[in-house]
Write a protein that binds this DNA or RNA. Structure first.
Length: 574
RNA sequence: CGGAGCGUAGUUCAGAUGGCUAGAACGUGCGCUUUGGGAGCGCAAGGUCGUGGGUUCAAGUCCCGCCGCUCCGACCA
C-alpha cells in the first residue's frame, strides 16, 4: 500500500482523550469517532480488526462451525425467555418517522447476544441424540445500551464480538467442552500478544446458574475491573463473587463499656452516625431489610465500612430474587423508620443474617429498631446472644482476606476480553428445545455460551503496547508487517531503488508493506508517522543507504544497515 | 441515573466584565525554498459561532429549553 494513497492519514493536532487507545488510534488514523462509543474503522484499523478476528476464527474453526446471524430479531423471541423486560442494556428499533411508520410499524430487538436466535435455529435442525454435540459461532456487531460509554474501543454501545454456543446431551460432555474452550481461548490470547497477561477469573453465573462463569481478564492499568488474586491457590475472583473476610479492627477497645441508647433524629447512614457519635465507621453496623420473592422479610447486616452483596445474600437466604424493602414495609414489619434499623430488638418473624464482619468487635453501634435511637457500646453475649452462624454477604474490598487460607488478596486492575457461561437448560427450556434419546424419550438440551470482544481487544492491545511516540503492534495483528520509508525521493535514482524494493517485498516475498512514498514530506515527519502507526519493522531507503537498507524494529532503539537477505531472515525469525 | 466541564473554520483551540468587520495554529490549494526526527517564506480559499426561544440599542459572550461531546461516580445478565 502506498501511504500517499491511503485514506485516513495521521493527524498532527488531534484531541487527547483520557484513554490511550482512543488518543492513539484516532491520531494515527485507525478509527474515526462518529459519536460517543461509536467508531468508523478506517483502512488501517479495519486491517487490525480483521487480523484479530481471523485469528479468533482460525482457532474457533477447530471446535465449532461459523454462521452469521442477524442483528435484528423479533421481540417475541425475547419475550419467550423473559429477557425482553429484564435485560437492562437491551435496545430495539422503531421506525424513525411517520412515513417509515406507515410502511412498517414493527419494532425489533437489536441483539446484544444471540441465545434468542441460535436456540430456535438449532431447534429447527437438530433433534436426534446422534447429532450431538455441536457448536455454532459467529463474529458480528452487537448492540448494548450501556449507561455510559467510555475509553475508546473499550466500551461502546456498538461493538464487535465473537459469540459461540455449544449444545450437549450430557453435563459431562458439556463440562469437557467448556474446559476445551478455556484452552482454545488462551491460545487465541497468546496469538494476539496478550496471553501472558490474561488470566481466568471466576465470576457470577448471573441469573442462569449458581455455578461460576469465567471471565478472561487482561491485566491492564486502564482496565475497568478489579480482580482479586489468591496467590497460594493461584485463583482469581471477580469482585462480585470474591469470598471475603474482613481484617480485624485495629486497636479495638480492651474494656467492655455499658450499653447506651443515643437519640439521633435525622441521623441516618453509617457515615453520618459515625461522625455524630464520634466513632470510627468500623464500629457502626449497616442493617438492611429485604423482601424475598417467597414473601419472607430478611434483615442483613454488615460492618459499617462494607456494602451488602445481594448476589451472595440471595444464595445464603435461598431465594430466587430479593429486593430492598420499601419504607412502608419496613415500618409495618419493624415498627421503625429506615435509618434506625439494627440487629437488636428485631421482631421474631424477621430472619437475621449477619456477615462475619459484624462479629469480633467490642463496643459497637447498631440501630435499635425504635425511632430515632441508636445504641452504642453494644456487645455480643451481653446485649444480644452470640449468633449461631455468620455468613459472607458483603462486597469484597481491597485489604480483605481469602477466608480459606487467611491470606490477603492481591488486587489487580484488568480489562475483560472474554467471558464464558454455563447456561445448562435455561434457554433450551424457554424454547422447548428437546432431543430424542436412544430410547425415543425427549430430554432437554444443555447449552453453554462463550464470548470474545474483538473490537475491545484492539483497544486493550494499544493500552498495553505503546510508548510516548505511538503504538507498537504485536506482529500478529499489525496492519502491515513492514513500514518502508522512502527519503530523498526527488532523486530519481533513490526513487527507483525504493519502488523496486517495494515491488520485490510485496510481489516476490509476499510481505504486507506500507510504503511511505510521499515526496514533499520531511524525514522527521515520516519517522514520526511510522512510530505513531506502530508497524513492527521499519525499512529506510535514502541517498545515504546506498546498496544497503536501513532496518529498525519499532520496539527497539537501534537501527542497522543491512542487505535485503539479512533483513528478510530477521523479519521471518521474529 | 447523580456530579463536573465543554460545543466557535476540515482539525485542535483562543475570543474577562455584552461593542465582532469573529482570530491563531495545524490541515488544504498555488508559488518559491527545503529533505535523517513533526522545516521556512509568501499568497489564497475556508464560519448562518450546536439548536430553538428569551433579555438588550447591541448576543459567540447573559438567561431558559433541547441536542451532542468529554471526564468522574453508580451500573455493566
Amino acid at each position: 500500500m502506498l501511504y500517499s494513497k491511503l485514506f485516513g492519514k495521521t493527524k498532527k493536532n488531534s484531541k487527547k482523550y483520557d484513554s490511550i487507545n482512543a488518543t492513539l488510534l484516532i491520531k494515527a488514523g485507525f478509527i474515526d469517532q462518529v459519536m460517543a462509543g461509536t467508531y468508523t474503522y478506517l483502512p488501517l484499523g479495519l486491517r487490525v480488526l480483521e487480523k484479530i478476528e481471523n485469528i479468533i476464527r482460525e482457532e474457533m474453526n477447530t471446535i465449532a462451525q461459523e454462521i452469521l446471524m442477524p442483528a435484528l430479531t423479533p421481540i417475541s423471541n425475547w419475550q419467550k425467555t423473559q429477557r425482553f423486560e429484564k435485560v437492562d442494556v437491551l435496545m430495539k428499533t422503531t421506525p424513525a418517522n411517520i412515513f417509515a411508520k406507515a410502511k412498517n410499524d414493527t419494532e425489533y430487538v437489536l441483539n446484544p447476544t444471540h441465545e434468542e436466535v441460535v436456540t430456535p435455529l438449532a431447534q429447527k435442525f437438530v433433534f436426534s441424540y446422534k447429532d450431538f454435540p455441536f457448536a455454532l459461532y459467529q463474529i458480528q456487531t452487537k448492540f448494548r445500551n450501556e449507561p455510559r460509554v467510555k475509553s475508546g474501543l473499550l466500551r461502546g454501545r456498538e461493538f464487535r464480538m465473537k459469540d459461540l454456543y455449544s449444545f450437549h446431551i450430557s453435563i459431562n460432555d458439556f463440562k469437557n467442552y467448556y474446559e476445551k474452550v478455556k484452552e482454545v481461548y488462551m491460545k487465541i490470547f497468546y496469538r494476539l500478544g496478550i496471553g501472558k497477561d490474561t488470566v481466568i477469573v471466576m465470576a457470577s453465573g448471573g441469573s442462569f446458574t449458581d455455578d461460576y462463569s469465567h471471565e478472561f481478564q487482561t491485566l491492564c492499568q486502564t482496565g475497568e475491573d478489579k480482580i482479586f488474586y489468591v496467590q497460594s491457590k493461584n485463583l482469581y475472583f471477580n469482585k462480585e463473587v470474591a469470598p471475603s473476610q474482613a481484617p480485624k479492627i485495629k486497636n479495638d477497645d480492651k474494656k467492655i463499656l455499658p450499653k447506651k441508647d443515643v437519640k439521633g433524629k435525622g441521623i441516618i447512614g453509617v457515615e453520618e452516625i459515625a461522625q455524630y457519635l464520634k466513632i470510627p465507621i468500623e464500629k457502626t453496623t449497616k442493617t438492611l431489610i429485604y423482601e424475598t420473592d417467597d414473601g419472607r422479610i430478611i434483615a442483613a447486616a454488615v460492618r459499617g465500612d462494607y456494602e451488602i452483596n445481594e448476589d451472595k445474600l440471595r444464595k445464603v437466604v435461598k431465594c430466587q430474587s430479593l429486593k430492598l424493602a420499601s419504607a412502608d414495609v419496613v415500618k409495618k414489619n419493624i415498627g421503625a423508620e429506615i435509618g434506625y434499623i439494627g440487629i437488636i430488638n428485631l421482631p421474631k418473624h424477621v430472619e437475621l443474617y449477619l456477615d462475619e464482619s459484624v462479629l469480633g468487635r467490642v463496643n459497637f453501634e447498631t440501630g435499635t429498631n425504635k425511632n430515632y435511637y441508636h445504641s452504642v457500646n453494644v456487645n455480643f453475649g451481653r446485649d444480644l446472644p452470640y449468633p449461631e452462624k455468620t455468613y459472607d454477604i458483603k462486597i469484597a474490598k481491597e485489604g480483605d482476606l481469602y477466608p480459606e487460607t487467611q491470606e490477603k488478596y492481591q488486587v489487580f486492575k484488568a480489562s475483560e476480553v472474554g467471558n464464558i457461561f454455563p447456561l445448562y437448560t435455561k434457554f433450551t427450556e424457554a424454547f422447548g428445545y428437546k432431543y430424542i434419546d436412544s430410547k425415543g424419550e425427549e430430554k432437554p438440551v444443555i447449552m453453554g455460551c462463550y464470548g470474545i470482544g474483538s473490537s475491545r481487544i484492539m483497544g486493550v492491545i494499544v493500552e498495553k503496547y505503546h510508548d510516548e511516540k505511538g503504538i507498537i503492534w504485536p506482529e500478529s495483528v499489525a496492519p502491515y508487517q513492514i513500514h518502508l520509508v522512502g527519503l530523498d525521493l526527488k532523486n530519481q535514482e533513490v526513487k527507483n531503488q525504493a519502488f523496486s524494493l517495494y515491488q520485490l517485498l510485496t510481489e516476490k516475498y509476499h510481505f504486507e508493506v506500507l510504503f511511505d512514498d510521499r515526496e514533499e514530506i520531511s524525514a522527521g515527519e515520516k519517522f514520526n508517522d511510522a512510530d505513531l502507526i506502530g508497524i513492527p519493522h521499519r525499512l529506510v531507503i535514502s541517498k545515504r543507504t546506498k546498496d544497503k537498507i536501513e532496518y529498525k524494529k519499532r520496539s527497539e532503539e537501534n537501527s542497522y544497515l543491512l542487505t535485503l537477505e539479512e533483513i528478510i531472515s530477521k523479519i521471518k525469525k521474529s
